[in-house]
């Protein structure tokens, strides 16, 4: 088990190396540079800036320098937020994004799971149809539409919840962004759970459980749901990545100082180090989550244990 985890973590290093390399050269292909402003800087100033940030050196040398600093977990200074290093920026924003994403993920799992199971147990009955119709809505309505509507309704008209800001992570400030972020995921989880649950309820071993007079809790939760949850677990990896990166819109609308806005600002301002930093951080999270998902899968299904 430990060997497996170590192997997977070591295996992530070449993956990360490839990601760093490709994105380093990709962003350099984009025309313009971090100091190209609407009113061009004086040539002398430009030269000095380029010298400080090693931008005057050959590209491969810059690449090697960047690799060295990344290996020391130093993502370098930001070109745009002049007074901050990337590490400082992330130290503040990353925890907020993680909290936001994880809360949304948990909410999606719990609510989506319950909805999916209820729908499966009432297959082809009104409750099933309404849950699935709601799920379709949840997937199709984009969150930049849901967010303003919820803000207007609960924040402005009813005044129950603040319309924006993070406020150090106070509960009332979290509700709207987490719900908005979770809605499409709730829909996907509900659909996945319903499908696999229907299949599980029809399976032979659940028939055995019914034939042996087990309680409905044992039939539904112990025997059917544990197998039915497996496809949902597989979906958790991509879902976590989507929540972390998909928070750009939510963070902008609700004015939350998370990592999401750096994607946009970094790319628009050619802030090379910022873009690279976000890419590396997100890649790390995707890899880590996929590992966690595989471990969880093995925990649930004895047929895929890694010994």
């Amino acid at each position: 088990m430990l060997r497996y985890v170590l192997g997977r973590l070591l295996g992530a290093i070449p993956t990360l190396f490839l990601i760093v390399t490709i994105s380093f050269f990709l962003i350099r292909i984009a025309p313009g540079g971090p100091f190209d402003l609407e009113r061009p800087l004086e040539a002398k100033v430009m030269e000095n800036l380029n010298k400080i940030y090693h931008l005057n050196e050959p590209l491969w040398n810059q690449y090697l320098l960047y690799l060295q600093s990344v290996a020391r977990l130093d993502f370098g200074p930001s070109f745009y937020f002049r007074d901050f290093t990337i590490n400082e920026l992330f130290a503040e924003s990353l925890p907020i994004s993680i909290q936001l994403g994880l809360s949304a993920l948990c909410l999606a799992l719990i609510v989506g799971g319950i909805l999916g199971v209820s729908a499966a147990l009432r297959q082809n009955k009104p409750a099933d149809y309404s849950i699935m119709a709601a799920a379709t809505l949840g997937v199709t309505i984009p969150n930049f539409v849901v967010a303003p509507i919820l803000t207007l309704l609960l924040g402005v008209w009813l005044g129950w919840l603040p319309v924006g800001g993070w406020n150090g992570g106070a509960f009332v400030n979290r509700v709207l962004p987490v719900v908005t972020l979770a809605l499409p995921q709730i829909a996907v989880v509900a659909r996945l759970t319903r499908g696999s649950m229907i299949e599980a309820l029809r399976s032979n071993h659940v028939r055995t459980a019914r034939a042996y007079g087990l309680t409905s809790y044992m039939i539904v939760v112990v025997h059917a749901l544990r197998g039915a949850i497996l496809p949902v677990v597989s979906y958790l990896g991509p879902a976590a990545a989507a929540l972390l990166t998909g928070s750009v819109v939510i963070e902008t609308i609700f004015g939350i100082p998370g990592i999401g806005r750096y994607f946009v600002q970094g790319a628009l301002n050619r802030d090379y180090t910022l873009v690279m930093g976000t890419v590396v951080v997100v890649a790390c999270f995707v890899i880590l989550f996929n590992l966690l998902v595989d471990l969880l899968y093995a925990l649930l299904d004895p047929r895929v244990r890694y010994d």
Partner: peptide
């Protein structure tokens, strides 16, 4: 009654038991 006084075994031994327990 079922599972206690009247019990049943099935045609499909490969799938009649829960693979996860």
């Amino acid at each position: 009654i079922r599972g206690a006084k009247i019990t049943m075994i099935f045609q499909e031994p490969m799938t009649s038991l829960d693979p996860l327990y």
